[in-house]
Simulated scan of single mutants.
Amino acid sequence: MKIMRKIVALAGAAAMALSLAACGGDANTTASAPASGSTSSSASKELKKVTFMLAWVPDTNHIGVYVAKNKGYFKDAGLDVDIIAVGQAGAEHAVSTGQADFALSNLTNAASYSLKGAGIIQTLQVQQKPSAVWCSLASNTAIKSPKDFDGKTFATFGSNESDAVIRRMIQADGGKGEFDKVTVGTNTFQTLSSGQADFGGFYATWEGVQAEMYGPKLNCFTEPDYGVPGNADGIGIITSEKKIKEDPDTVRAFTQAAQKGYEYAYQNPDEAAQILVDDAGDDTLKLDFVKRSMQVITEGQYWGDPAKIKDGSFVLGTNDFDGVQKYLDFIAEADAFTDASDNVVKQAPKVSDVSTNEFLGK
């Protein structure tokens, strides 16, 4: 059975949420349109072809890669990058098996897959703090804080990890941590609106924007405010141990060009939003929506403190070993990690074993 960790589950809901707002679109059929930074057929022969797989539909988590392609950063690094739709088995599986050279994922996924025997390494972490939020519809006045999730129904994608998070949040707010569950149908918004569930998981930088702009309005609570330690959302770029061993130069070239793309997007969010809308080949992306998502990211400093990035005291893309390790240890304590045989693993993987900063530019 395909592994469904939080980033996959919540992002799947995000994709459907945007479709609800913008109409149409399918993550498995999305293809990237040629970007202005792509090469001609003659020039491409001189460049090394590599593939980057989306984690779901194109969104602002991927935006630095689109900017890097559009601005020619990959070309300057000697690479011809093909941005491809997510495979049925997921981006992590594709990277692990060599079907894709790079992909968007997160450190929790990399750690989880390492327990299944997949050799995945994250080389760049763009998101530096959690963006996951756990919400009810604002119209549901019975829920005023996480303790009110007690006895209610959780719209879930089946992740033990999410169960552990919700339980901790409820208990930290004075509740028992007991709730029912229902598997999300078409999307989390629809599951809540239909009355099948009372609360579910979203991302503040994507579905939170959807709710703000298009509705339905949400009442949301963040993990750090209710006892969940560390950073659950260390979103970034992964590659395989095999790729690093056999072709470290390409890994370095891709990582640093993508890093440059994210840096540009962080400094020029409106222009980056336009690039994503123009180049992603996904007609569900609306410019005002993507601009607002980037505004939330920049105002919330989700990719790091811009002042520290400017003065060099923080390098955008740095993997957060300590913050993510605290979260992984919490997940392990909740028996939410399993191996390839679905046996519970008590010891959390080490973040330092599934990520590296050695390929980043300084």
Rank of each mutant, 00 (worst) to 15 (best):
E358G: 03
K346V: 12
S293E: 15
A138Q: 14
F102M: 04
T284A: 06
A103W: 00
G117N: 10
D150E: 13
W56I: 02
P269G: 08
T255P: 05
I63V: 14
A258F: 03
N160V: 06
G87P: 11
Y302V: 06
A14G: 12
G117D: 12
G195V: 08
D80C: 00
C135Y: 05
W206Y: 12
K45R: 13
F359C: 14
T29E: 15
K181C: 07
G151W: 09
A232T: 04
L328F: 06
M213T: 11
G195I: 05
L124G: 03
E207D: 14
M4Q: 08
S114I: 01
S42D: 09
T29F: 12
S36N: 08
D322P: 04
F289M: 08
A111P: 07
I63L: 13
L360W: 04
E161Q: 07
I297N: 12
S32W: 05
A142K: 13
S96I: 01
A142Q: 10
T29H: 15
Y73Q: 00
G98Y: 10
L18P: 00
K116F: 07
M4I: 11
Q190H: 07
Q88R: 14
S139H: 08
S105G: 12
I331N: 03
V67H: 09
A68W: 00
Q267D: 15
A232H: 06
G300L: 03
Q295A: 14
S36V: 07
A31I: 13
A138V: 02
C23A: 09
F321S: 08
V251E: 09
H93P: 03
Q347N: 10
E299W: 03
K286Y: 00
N140A: 13
T108A: 11
S159D: 07
D270P: 07
Y226Q: 08
L18H: 02
A89M: 14
V209E: 06
Q259H: 01
A27S: 11
S159Q: 04
V228D: 09
A132G: 07
T153L: 12
S194W: 03
M4E: 08
F289W: 04
M1K: 04
D101S: 05
P146R: 10
